[in-house]
Design a protein around this nucleic acid. Structure first.
Lengths: 124, 124
DNA sequence: ACCTTATTGCAACTTTATTGCAAATACCAT
DNA sequence: ATGGTATTTGCAATAAAGTTGCAATAAGGT
């Protein structure tokens, strides 16, 4: 664990929203932390491998976002199509469905992604 | 409707799997249909606007895929992590959940994406 | 056939992400 | 602390997906 990685981790800890690589880069530079964009990519990759961070690929965003996994329960997201705000959904209705799918398709399911989009209260 | 657009549409009609822009380009060229990659992108965009085609952004693929919407019911997908095969799931367990989310978050939900990944019968 | 409008191809460009390599930093044993 | 090894970082170059501007071509109506 280097100071650069600590800085990325600390940023993710104090940020509610899942951040993209560019956002991590920009925010750290605002805080006078010198970090290369390549290092951001490599760092989130390492943190993901270590199981500390989750990678999110939200529909039609065309980029990856990263959020802290540490101590968080399995959850999903809803994104506002106007302002881009991302809110956590502390539910998952897919346990039974997963079993049904395994029966119907003969796949072994090992993951799923679920995301909602819509209009947040402010943008309605 | 031009012959180029007909060719893309016809390809999507006879293909089971959702295709990426590059795949559409490659397959049409194999069939001696001269089409520019840019035109593929513009065509699928138009077909999407017309409501004929659905855009899929599957998790961690890093590209968009397109499938025919025409006459198909709302559905989701499961993708094999080994061979990349994509199979349709003719179910959607999210109607009640959507209402719950609208109550909890005050968002107006207008869409969702749901995708499963795992191992297909052949790759297990 | 003619004229207008929409579509296509080419080239250049944008954005997100990855790779190679040399320099800098962290870690460990002494 | 000091030195040596392995890891990490920054820079430059590159890759891949997708977009934009513009001139040339094709489509459609009268």
């Amino acid at each position: 664990m280097t100071r650069t990685r600590e800085a990325v981790l600390a940023l993710l800890q104090r940020t509610r929203q899942p951040l993209s690589a560019t956002e991590i880069f920009d925010r750290l530079h605002q805080e006078k932390v010198a970090i290369d964009l390549v290092t951001v990519y490599r760092t989130v990759h390492v943190l993901k491998e270590l199981g500390l961070v989750l990678q999110l690929d939200l529909h039609q965003e065309g980029l990856s976002r990263y959020e802290l996994k540490e101590g968080r329960k399995h959850h999903h997201h809803i994104r506002c199509q106007i302002c881009g705000q991302i809110v956590d959904l502390l539910l998952c209705p897919l346990k039974k469905v997963t079993k049904l799918i395994e029966q119907q398709t003969q796949f072994i399911v090992d993951d799923h992604t679920l995301e909602f989009t819509g209009l947040c209260p402010q943008c309605q």
